[in-house]
Design a protein around this nucleic acid. Structure first.
Lengths: 351, 351
DNA sequence: CAGTAGGGTGGGAGCGCTCCCATCCGTGAT
DNA sequence: ATCACGGATGGGAGCGCTCCCACCCTACTG
């Protein structure tokens, strides 16, 4: 490794110490903000640091201190979904934002399939990250349990069940669904169909529950003919809508549990000659770009993905601090371990 | 791999060596795939590794070997744009894909503003990454030059000018624009307006050039009244379209240099009572989700963002290898240092 | 049959930092 | 003036790995 312009020869702690006329330990203390340093010394060290353009070597620090100053965001889905779903990018954006205030780094990891997940687990186990943010997980995801076993601080983006052991951040899927259905009912719709998400995702279950409860609260009896089971994809939405029409139930509104499915549904409705919102009201979930650009504009339940990312990060930092203090297990600080963020119904022309 | 109670006590190289009855160096050789190990020994070591569930400690490796086994993707924009633009997520997805085949990690970094960029530069300089992927850069971006100065292997997603010193990957903005305009002309449109991107982005310049050249090639004289300067945003598209209408030129087609701007333009056209495509044909650029969901479907120039991410990664790996060999400067392998990927016109109802 | 390549191998010497203990010195108590 | 206490400081001992040199043994060479 020769002639590497500038970056090949960076100053070390030792050199800063020599320059400032102090010992290695003192410089380390200054760098790490320890209070046990006199003001004079601190100033001298800081000057030397500035003059030399000293930047701590992270690898050395990680090795000595046994921490990595980085967290991993693990997206279990194939990264193809990562594209289409604003959920992910919003989340990642929020994480980035929260991390900007710390000096932690963000490792982005896609884990497709079992083999890669194993590799990933090993990787994470090797102390490469201080904590893990798990985004969008199915209830049977093995990675989550592995992380628990390995005792790695982890926060999950949506609880996998009602009694998720991992700290989690989620949107209020239940309330969101209720607000959507309530809105439809308030508009005079009585035959409200639902295209659900995949029910092995807890959030999808909650949305269905919200739908049911809101109908009940409105005195509308539950008709299972109006319920079809989707998978969050556009194609799935199309298929479900066809199914719904075939059943011949006289529906006058559809609550699709994702914008993508709403989009699929809209296509089928249009092909069938049903006007939106005149004949059928349509409501989605996510309030993604699609909702804003659909024709007519899609009424949708907004999820604060960015805030979620932010909240997850903060929760994780807490977890990491706790782990560092060695206070594992039961006794936790006042922190809310399961955060539920409110949704907001964005009303547009489709309803 | 069973019941690793805690992750606090992972086996070390030394322990593997003891278990296999060999020396530390030998284990290191096996781990790193050196050929200088007899088959018998290798087998023994591999067995010990498996039994102990050994995973190398990256920090130690990084410190000793002076490399990090990770690359950074730097997104200079505020991460708010990261959301809306499928460009970024597509790119990141491609990078992730390419990286899956290596054992490098992906560090995602947002750099808003000058202060953060400086911090970032220092960070990168501290040997924390082996290389940098720079995404979406304005021609006056200071970070790129800093990276060159620091001699850090870097690949940029779009060249900042015709003689970009950094290796780059780009879409064929010029040809893409020509295909869009050519398509419009083939449809019988003669008064084709363009809403450009910000011209401090090289790619936006190329699109404008493509527009001009294609018109010229079609024997249509250039009318600067049909040219308005946008900024890639939806609001900008709206503003530009208004401007265009105010000028009162009898346009019959609009080529917007991003889907977002096309969307803004569409809104204004609709408000003005112009029908798409009957009165005015509309073509966008990106072929994002928006294009697919707009009404009518937006004809758009598709950029293979995913392939770009992939290509950038491969180029970067090459650069890193070159740097490691110490062969800096002029003499480069046969690698194409400026890759231009083809675009594809996706025709929908808007034209 | 001595002499000499090498392929294989072991292990010392760090990489740059944090941790922690020993030491030093100033200050207030006695 | 003496002692004790505690804040400030220096520096040894690693953290787990790679690099590299010395060494060994086998297999040729002449």
């Amino acid at each position: 490794m020769v002639a590497h312009g500038t970056h090949s020869r960076r100053p070390t702690l030792e050199e800063v110490a020599a320059r400032a006329g102090v010992g290695r330990g003192t410089v380390s203390r200054v760098i790490n903000g320890s209070p046990r340093v006199s003001d004079r010394t601190r100033a001298a060290v800081e000057e030397a640091v500035a003059e030399l353009g000293y930047v701590p070597n992270t690898a050395a620090r990680a090795l000595a201190a046994n921490r990595s100053d980085s967290i991993a965001v693990v997206v279990p889905e194939a990264e193809s979904r990562f594209f289409s779903e604003p959920y992910f990018s919003g989340m990642v954006g929020g994480v980035g934002l929260a991390l900007a205030e710390t000096n932690l780094q963000l490792l982005l990891t896609f884990a497709r399939g079992e083999r890669e997940q194993s590799r990933l687990a090993a990787y994470l186990a090797a102390h490469r990250v201080d904590g893990v943010l798990l985004v969008s997980v199915h209830s049977d995801d093995p990675l989550a349990d592995r992380l628990i076993q390995m005792d790695i601080p982890t926060v999950i983006s949506g609880p996998r069940s009602a009694d998720e052991p991992l700290p989690s951040v989620d949107t209020d899927n239940y309330a969101g669904a209720r607000s959507a259905v309530g809105h439809l009912v308030a508009r005079g719709r009585r035959a409200v169909a639902i295209i659900t998400g995949p029910l092995d995702v807890y959030g999808a279950q909650r949305r269905l529950a919200g739908y049911q409860d809101e109908l009940a609260a409105s005195g509308i009896s539950y008709d299972e003919k109006l319920v079809v089971y989707g998978d969050f994809t556009e194609e799935g939405g199309r298929r479900c809508m066809e199914e719904l029409l075939e059943r011949g139930t006289g529906l006058d509104a559809v609550f699709a549990c994702s914008d993508l499915m709403a989009s699929g549904a809209r296509q089928v409705l249009r092909e069938a000659g049903r006007r939106i919102p005149d004949d059928v009201s349509l409501v989605g979930f996510d309030d993604s770009v699609i909702a804003r650009h659909m024709e007519p504009g899609l009424t949708s339940v907004r999820q604060p993905t960015r805030d979620m990312g932010r909240a997850m990060t903060e929760l994780l930092l807490d977890e990491i601090a706790l782990a560092a203090e060695g206070k594992r297990s039961s006794v936790r600080r006042g922190t809310q371990r399961h955060l539920v963020l409110p949704t907001e119904l964005v009303v547009r022309a489709s309803s």
